[in-house]
Structure formats: structure tokens, C-alpha cells
Nucleic acid binder design. Structure first.
Length: 429
DNA sequence: TCTGGGGTCCTAGGACCC
DNA sequence: TCTGGGGTCCTAGGACCC
């Protein structure tokens, strides 16, 4: 835990326009040009270069509505390439690990670093060093926000991003300075205050971060729950949000996709679900986990006027497992149970819950014998190895269908996996 | 035609038990 | 006729994050 009394600081390091920056590392000609990266299915804009932001392109905007605008303004468009971004992220995080023994990787493009018993001047020097080093070694530009709490460090990071003269570093430490800055921050831009809370707070006369910090604590707890109270305390330099060095194991795992076109037939839903289950089971095994519960959902699109339906169903397994055929059979059974005729489905997905470690699970009387389990594990190991070596999906269950399917997602403008797959590099094609 | 995917946490309310 | 109260567990829904 951070100590409010001593001079412990937290640095929030956030990559600038991360996905766009990743694409630019390998195509430097994109520098200075408007660039956007789209979500899965080429659906919405999920990353924008500064030039794209300046053109008024919003986060989360549906790409198809802006097609003409993109063309007219020379906006370069990319489908998302998570293999590339994940690898670049690992490189950035590795550099950061050289600056503090206490690093919390918070998301693909953000980390918190703790610096204990530090003089502010020295801290700012270190932050500039981080800024320079990450850029030089990975090609990714970052900003560094410094403060006594995570929530304030997030705000400091934002200030660094919005203020070119800051050279990528901002320190929030003196109470009066914090007060002054918070007065300029929209309450909805505070970490932990989302759309609903922002609307509610503004209706209650609280429109800036400083007013939130001064709001009565019990009123905040009543309306924004305990998490909201923590946010308010953190704005007042009281650390409440724990620093997670080694994050706890995942509690759930999902694989779902929107379809390229909406589908009605159970058979197509089964094919799609089948491939998601295989993917999810694979993730399970990579993390050395087993699922105790399988949940499946199927839903229509809320953007269409057609009748809406969301079906969900769960099944507790006789014993936790990561064996694809068992998970697959359960998932299909649930799908058939929740399927309703006459709807156009936009999405199906599978969720694994009650995850347990492979090696410390509770023994059950009904689970397969040791022999049987060993056979299953050997088979999955072989499957994962082959898919890893020869590329995704060389070995799959026949039920997930063969060849290009209409429900497959669109990905029309994906860059090569420059750093992780030689077969996709431009020169060997 | 076309609007992402993957997570966590908190709370209220019902079921159930003693 | 009188018709408790407290604890726990589960689930659904809603909020947040990136």
C-alpha cells in the first residue's frame, strides 16, 4: 500500500494513442497523418492519432458512418492487430520494469510504478528519463503522471498529454496546485466516474473534479457506492486503491464476437459458438486454469428495430476441466436450450466461470480417473502445439465449419504481425 | 450492408435456514 | 388470535475500467 505520510509516489505511464503508435513504428510515413484503428469487425474507431482527433473523429464512432469523411480527409484506416499490439506492449512494460521494482501492468498500454521515499525534483528527473527511454527503445511515445494516489496520477497523466510544453511529464503534489487543477477537470474525466455517474453528479451541481472532492462523504457513498467514495478520497491525496503487484488469477474468461452479418439459423450459431469455445478453452489452458461453470449467451442487435432477445444459460460441470470436447458439448447443449426461433442474432459467446488452477483443484468422485485425465491432457497438449506451430485453427473440431463463413468478422485493413509472424511480413509475401 | 471485446466490483432482493 | 428476525447464499442488474 502507498503511504500517505512518507513521500511515496505513484507514476502512471500511459502510451500515447497506443494502437496508432504501434502501426506507426512500422510505417513511419504515417507520422503527422490522421490515422485510426478500428475495433473487431471493423466496427468502431478505438484509437486515433492526434491529427484524427483534430479532425473531430470521436472515440467509439461507427466506422461505416464516417466512410466518406475518412476518404475525403485522407484518414488512414487499420483493422485492429492484437498480436502486434500485445507484443509491443510487452516491450514497453519490460523497459518500465527497469525503473521500479514495483510495477502494476494496468492495461495493454498503461502501468503504475511506485517510487518510495522520493524527493519531488528527483522524481521528475526519473519521469523524464522514462519518457525518453521508452520512446528510444520501443518507438512508442508515452506520458508520465506523478502524484500520491493512482487517481491523481491518472489526472496528472492527462495534464501531461494535453500540455505539449510539459514534455510528457506532470507532477501533482502541492495541495493548492491540485485544487487549482481539479477545478479545470470535468467530473466525467475522473477515473472511476463513467457516463451514468457523470450525468447524475452534474444534475446534482457537481460538474468539476474539485467539487467532487469537496462533496459530503456519506452522500457520495450512498449514491456512488464504496468505490465512488474511494475515488473522492484519492482526489484528496488519501490512497485507497490498492497497488496490485502480482494480479490475482482471472475469475472468468470470455470469447464472443459480433457476426459479419446477422444470422437466424441454429446451425450457424452452433458453428460460431463452436469456434469460440475452442478459442476460449485454449486461453484456459495457456493460463493453466480449468472451468467449473460454462455459460453461453446469444443476443440480437440493439441497433435494429427487429424484435430483441437475449438468451443466457449456465451449467455447472461435474468437475472443473479445460478439455475442449467436454466444454464444447456443454456449450452446445446450453445454446440449444436458450435458442429461440425467429430472431436475427448479432452475437453469441461462451464464458467460463469458477476458474481453478490446474494443479490445486478439489478432487471429485465423479471426475475422470487419473488415466483418463492424462489422456485428455496429452491430446490437448498436442492440439495446442500443432495450432501454435502451424497457425491458428489448423486442427479444429469439424463442428466449427470449414472455409469462409458469412458470420466471420470483417478485418479488411489489417497490418502484418511484424514482430510475431515472419510469414506475414511484406518482403516474404 | 456495416455500431468491439474482455474484464471487475457492488448492491438489492429473493430463497432458504434456524 | 397471535404470524419473527437474523444470517447466508445466490443471482441479476448496473456501474465502472481499458
Amino acid at each position: 500500500m502507498l503511504d500517505a505520510q512518507s513521500r511515496d509516489f505513484v507514476a502512471m505511464v500511459d502510451c500515447n494513442n497506443f494502437y496508432v503508435s504501434c502501426e506507426r513504428v512500422f510505417q513511419p510515413a504515417l507520422e503527422g497523418k490522421p490515422v485510426v484503428v478500428l475495433s473487431n469487425n471493423d466496427g468502431c474507431v478505438i484509437a486515433r492519432s492526434n491529427e484524427a482527433k483534430a479532425l473531430g473523429i470521436a472515440m467509439g464512432e461507427p466506422a461505416f458512418k464516417r466512410k466518406a469523411f475518412f476518404e475525403g480527409n485522407g484518414v488512414r484506416i487499420f483493422s485492429s492487430n492484437y498480436a502486434l499490439y500485445g507484443d509491443m506492449s510487452a516491450r514497453v512494460m519490460q523497459v518500465l520494469a527497469g525503473f521500479s521494482p514495483e510495477v502494476e501492468v494496468y492495461s495493454i498500454d498503461e502501468s503504475f510504478l511506485v517510487f518510495r521515499a522520493m524527493q519531488p525534483d528527483r522524481l521528475v528527473q526519473i519521469a523524464h528519463d522514462i519518457w525518453r527511454t521508452v520512446q528510444k527503445w520501443t518507438g512508442i511515445p508515452v506520458c508520465v503522471g506523478l502524484a500520491r494516489t493512482k487517481t491523481l496520477a491518472k489526472i496528472a497523466n492527462r495534464l501531461a498529454k494535453k500540455t505539449p510544453a510539459s514534455n510528457g511529464v506532470w507532477l501533482l503534489d502541492e495541495a493548492e496546485d491540485i485544487e487549482r487543477q481539479l477545478a479545470k477537470i470535468d467530473v466525467g474525466d475522473v477515473w472511476g466516474i463513467g457516463r451514468q455517474y457523470s450525468r447524475f453528479l452534474k444534475a446534482s451541481g457537481i460538474d468539476t473534479a474539485d467539487k467532487l472532492e469537496q462533496a459530503p462523504r456519506d452522500w457520495v457513498k450512498k449514491h456512488l457506492t464504496i468505490a465512488g467514495l474511494h475515488t473522492v478520497l484519492e482526489l484528496g491525496q488519501i490512497p485507497c486503491i490498492a497497488f496490485e503487484d502480482n494480479p490475482p488469477a482471472a475469475k472468468s474468461l470470455v470469447c464472443s464476437r459480433s457476426f459479419g452479418t446477422r444470422i437466424s439459423e441454429l446451425e450457424s450459431l452452433e458453428e460460431a459458438l463452436s469456434s469460440y469455445v475452442q478459442r476460449a478453452a485454449e486461453k484456459l489452458r495457456v493460463k493453466k486454469l480449468m472451468a467449473g461453470v460454462v455459460r453461453v449467451f446469444a443476443e440480437t442487435s440493439r441497433f435494429h428495430p427487429d424484435p430483441q432477445y437475449t438468451g443466457t444459460g449456465s451449467q455447472t460441470l461435474a468437475a472443473p476441466t479445460s478439455y475442449t470436447p467436454i466444454l464444447h458439448a456443454q456449450a452446445l447443449r446450453i445454446l440449444r436450450r436458450i435458442y429461440r426461433d425467429g430472431f436475427k442474432y448479432q452475437k453469441v459467446g461462451v464464458m467460463f466461470l469458477e476458474l481453478v488452477q490446474e494443479n490445486n483443484r478439489q478432487l471429485s468422485f465423479i471426475e475422470p480417473s487419473g488415466e483418463e485425465r492424462k489422456k485428455q491432457q496429452a491430446l490437448m497438449k498436442m492440439l495446442d502445439k500443432a495450432n501454435d506451430k502451424f497457425g491458428q485453427r489448423i486442427l479444429t473440431l469439424a463442428s466449427s465449419g470449414v472455409g469462409r463463413k458469412p458470420w466471420h468478422m470483417r478485418q479488411e485493413r489489417k497490418s502484418p504481425r511484424y514482430t510475431t509472424c515472419w510469414a506475414e511480413l511484406p518482403m516474404v509475401k
